[in-house]
Design a protein around this nucleic acid. Structure first.
Length: 547
RNA sequence: GCGCCAGUAGCUCAGCUGGAUAGAGCAACAGCCUUCUAAGCUGUAGGCCACUGGUUCGAAUCCAGUCUGGCGUACCA
């Protein structure tokens, strides 16, 4: 809000001086509040081309600057040539009034109006249960999708899965082995590369309960039936877990449909036609070496089965064909290798690969008091996302998985997560919201009517002004978090906002502060509550009314 | 070997499209409840920003190299 205003008067001043094509004037909020509310280094940027000392240029600029004293209180030069602006309390009072006008929509923007975004995340095949790493993928994808929505985009949340192929057969064989061990022969051999998780035994038990005695032959038909049973079982669990953390995707895209509709064959033909695919050693290869990558790769194995690359490419092409302007893929770092292949192929097919935004998050390690909790796949003692949700709750899980940058390894400390106390950061945010609600409850109990404040200029206390300053930034923080695809940007901001509110609450009594001031403070608290609630909603965390 | 991610306070992490004295939370220490929720507030202490060199008015940030950890590097996905 301050930036747009300031930019224009600076452009005018620079024109006056004779600089008609100034570089983009960048403003930032100084870390040190003594440096004012807004700061620009434009004079230093111009020093090179103007061949003058930065401070001299700054002096010239501020002498030319035309501004309203009622809005900008002070303009000063500092350090090597920064120009610092200080806005008046009246300006902040005015700004708060403007913010309150957006009501429940506070934080929304129209940046992406008319643009369609597809966000694909989770995309786990139905061969097992979700674990902690999937959880990170899920909440990042879901939150990024929400950020796009709040920025005005039309968003599709998508889950891509494969219910054919080797892994599913493996699942079927694993279940069959456990089934036979329980029903007929405890020594029945378990497939070497089978799924060792305990959940396979649960599936087998359920299978026994429903199909006992009808599946002893180990025939092809049996396995097909078992496979379907296992698929449904796993998918059911996965969806249940996702629903627990408020994730409900719009589209479940089945890889198999790409085969059935002939899209895969079409893709092979097209790649062959373009001279990008060739046969060697009984397999079909793609000429990635001509698309800027190091090595050619197999797209159809000599067995006739395609590798994962082929459907991945076809799937991305379909996403383009479906008309999305932005295509977001959320992957764990173990999938990095596939990305260059898909992007290169997509470009070769004539699509703009810059529309694909790949978000790669690093792994999660579960620790407890500094000790790593083992999550081994082989022993089957893996900590599932459901286990964690049971133990610490949905809000804590979502917040912990979102509070770090996506490219850093995330340490999930069980001991802290379990604490239902002040050391747990998620409660700090929720508490701020609950506290505000409680003030309004109090007011109601005492028969006080809350109405639109007539005089926000009564808000002059340092902690009031600081809170307003933060509130002004709420919409731009959402845009920033969206552009960077970094949910933690919003999480960090909300912590700051909560802190500013707690300080305000501590310093300024709201009820009984005199009618006009009280109403102004109600407005400040109310706007803070809206920002807090909206921010938490975007992160997928509840905003409790009472704690 | 090659590629991606990371290395910042005791711990977990921000800051990384170069800018003013490097920030936060937790942990530690010292304070604040007869007043709207103390799950809160205030203060103190804590740092060769992995290492070496380069780029410039200025580097945690950019470049090169080295070291350490994670993930990849399939006719698995």
């Amino acid at each position: 809000m301050q930036i747009e205003h300031s930019k224009q008067i600076f452009i005018d001043a620079l024109n006056e001086i004779g600089i008609n094509n100034p570089p983009d004037i960048k403003f930032e909020t100084p870390k040190n509040p003594e440096h004012g509310d807004l700061s620009t280094n434009i004079a230093m940027q111009l020093a090179g081309t103007m061949k003058k000392a930065p401070r001299a240029i700054a002096q010239q600029i501020i002498e030319t600057l035309q501004y309203d004293n009622d809005i900008i209180e002070e303009v000063s030069i500092a350090g090597p040539g920064f120009i610092n602006l200080k806005f008046s309390d009246n300006f902040y009072a005015y700004a708060l009034g403007k913010l309150a006008e957006s009501g429940d929509d506070f934080g929304r923007s129209a940046m992406g109006k008319g643009q369609r975004v597809n966000v694909e995340y989770v995309s786990v095949n139905p061969t097992g249960l979700l674990h902690l790493g999937h959880g990170r993928n899920a909440v990042i994808g879901d939150t990024v999708a929400s950020l796009y929505e709040w920025c005005g985009y039309d968003v599709t949340r998508e889950y891509y899965f494969n219910n054919a192929g080797n892994q599913m057969n493996n699942l079927a064989k694993s279940i069959y082995a456990r089934y036979m061990q329980q029903v007929a022969d405890p020594g029945f051999e378990f497939p070497e590369d089978g799924y060792h998780g305990d959940y396979i035994k649960s599936i087998a038990s359920d299978l026994i309960a429903t199909h006992r005695g009808t599946l002893k032959e180990g025939t092809y038909q049996d396995l097909t039936k078992i496979r379907k049973f296992g698929e449904n079982w796993c998918f059911e669990k996965i969806k249940q877990t996702l629903t627990r953390i408020y994730i409900n995707q719009d589209v479940f895209y089945n890889e198999d449909s790409l085969y059935k509709s002939g899209k895969i064959k079409e893709l092979i033909d097209e790649l062959t036609e373009k001279g990008l695919a060739y046969d060697k050693d009984g397999a079909k290869w793609l000429r990635f070496s001509e698309l800027g990558l190091n090595d050619d790769r197999v797209i159809v194995k000599s067995s006739g089965e395609p590798t994962y690359r082929l459907p991945d490419i076809a799937y991305h092409r379909e996403k383009f064909r479906r008309g999305f302007d932005i295509i977001v893929d959320v992957f764990g770092s173990d999938h990095v290798a596939t990305i260059p292949d898909v992007l290169a192929a997509i470009q070769a097919l004539g699509f703009d690969k810059d529309k694909v935004k790949v978000l790669i998050h690093q792994f999660v390690t579960l620790t407890e008091n500094g000790q790593q909790v083992k999550m081994s796949k082989r022993t089957g003692k893996s900590y599932t996302l459901d286990d964690l949700l049971d133990e610490v709750g949905e809000d804590v899980v979502r917040f912990f998985l979102l509070m770090r940058g996506i490219s850093t390894h995330l340490e999930f400390d069980l001991a802290i997560a379990r604490q239902q106390s002040d050391t747990n950061p998620v409660f700090y945010l929720q508490y701020a919201h609950a506290r505000i609600c409680s003030v309004f409850d109090q007011a109601k109990e005492r028969g006080i009517t809350v109405r639109d404040s007539q005089d926000l200029t009564l808000l002059k206390h340092e902690s009031e002004i600081n809170l307003i300053k933060l509130l002004i930034r709420f919409p731009e923080i959402i845009v920033l978090a969206c552009n960077k695809s970094e949910p933690h940007v919003l999480a960090d901001y909300l912590r700051e906002l909560a802190a500013a509110f707690h300080i305000f609450y501590h310093n300024c009594r709201i009820i009984c502060s005199g009618e006009n001031l009280m109403q102004a403070r109600f407005q400040l608290a109310g706007t803070t509550r809206t920002a807090m609630r909206n921010g938490l909603t975007i992160l997928g965390i509840s905003a409790p009314v009472r704690m």
